[in-house]
Amino acid sequence: MTDLDPAFERAVAELPDTPAWHELGVERARALEAEVFSGSADGDVGTADRAVERPGDDDATPVRLYRPPALDEPAPALVFAHGGGFVLGTLDSADDLARRLAATTGSVVVSVDYRLAPEHPCPAGLADVTTVVEWTVASADELGVDPAQVGVAGSSAGANLAAMAALRADAAVDIAVLFYPMLDPTLGGASHAEHADAPLLTRADIEWFWRLYRDDGAIPVDDRRLSPLPAAGGGPSSLADSPPTVVVTAGCDPLRDDGARYADALTDAGGTVERRHYPGAPHGFLSLADTVPAAADAWEDLAAAVPARR
């Protein structure tokens, strides 16, 4: 088992001492997340809130646009899906990550407030993210973005939705940026056992999230809407058209092998993939960049992996 880097260990110890997500239940977990993580971050990245109509639905998906200052038009764009195990997460709780992603990559970031399980199990969230990708391309002139440079990004469960949207959208996606993706509903990787009691995310949490996303287990684990990972219902042929992909993984994360296996699958399918691995880091470590120098360095690595796409 990889040991947690001491700097990350100290940062985790300073976080509020809270029960595991699965022990709280949906409503209490959402309330806790809003208390601990919500609130806009400082910075000069401009924001604008919009709503994207859902096909065949009277409702709409809220999105928040982040544009770094002095960004030329048309600019590259990244449609971003937050983490939270398909159950948690809001535009506010993802604000810091979306701002830093925009500033680091020099892109307009379109953060998606997709529908959550258990009220909206698979494939509702996937449909929302896919629709926003298509809307961003179709609305490129209005948004001041380059329709040929619209990519996807996501964190944890959101990285799953981003990867799937890149494969399913009726629009070209030029890059996928996946932070510690949550991809295997069978929890088949060795890291799920090695780091079952890891900080910030446990195996029991992941099992709970997957069960809710799978409509209380009614959706079989090999349903192709659940994951792009071949062993979890996808297949090499489904990955042949994947865009160039950056996969960020953490060594002390039960989801470590989800990302590693997906990177290998993309390579086997002939895709272009770059894996950035941080052995002593926990799940979600990119959110600790203000307190842990290694996390800030990882963002600099990301800037090199996702250069300006002009």
Rank of each mutant, 00 (worst) to 15 (best):
G46M: 12
T47K: 04
A51Q: 13
A51C: 11
A51K: 11
E53W: 05
R54N: 05
P55I: 01
G56S: 10
D58F: 06
D59M: 03
T61Q: 03
V63D: 09
R64E: 08
R64I: 05
L65V: 15
Y66V: 04
P68F: 09
P68R: 04
P68V: 14
A70G: 14
L71I: 01
D72F: 09
D72T: 15
E73L: 14
A77F: 05
A77S: 05
V79L: 10
A81E: 03
A81R: 00
G83F: 04
G84E: 07
G84Y: 03
G85C: 03
G85I: 07
F86N: 03
F86A: 10
L88Y: 03
T90P: 00
T90D: 05
D92R: 02
D96W: 04
D96E: 13
R100L: 10
L101D: 04
A102L: 04
T104Y: 07
T104I: 01
T105P: 02
T105R: 03
G106D: 01
S107A: 15
V108S: 13
S111C: 12
S111N: 14
D113K: 07
Y114C: 05
A117P: 09
P118M: 07
E119L: 11
P121Q: 13
C122R: 11
C122E: 15
G125N: 07
G125P: 08
G125Y: 07
V129G: 05
V129Q: 01
V129H: 02
T130W: 03
V133D: 06
V133K: 06
E134M: 07
S139Y: 03
A140H: 04
A140E: 08
A140I: 09
A140P: 11
L143M: 05
G144S: 00
G144E: 00
V145P: 11
V145S: 10
V145D: 11
V145E: 08
D146H: 03
P147C: 13
A153D: 11
G154T: 02
S155W: 01
S156L: 06
A157C: 12
A157V: 10
A159Q: 07
L161W: 00
A163S: 13
A166E: 02
L167S: 14
L167H: 10
L167I: 13
L167P: 12
R168L: 14
A169N: 06
D170R: 14
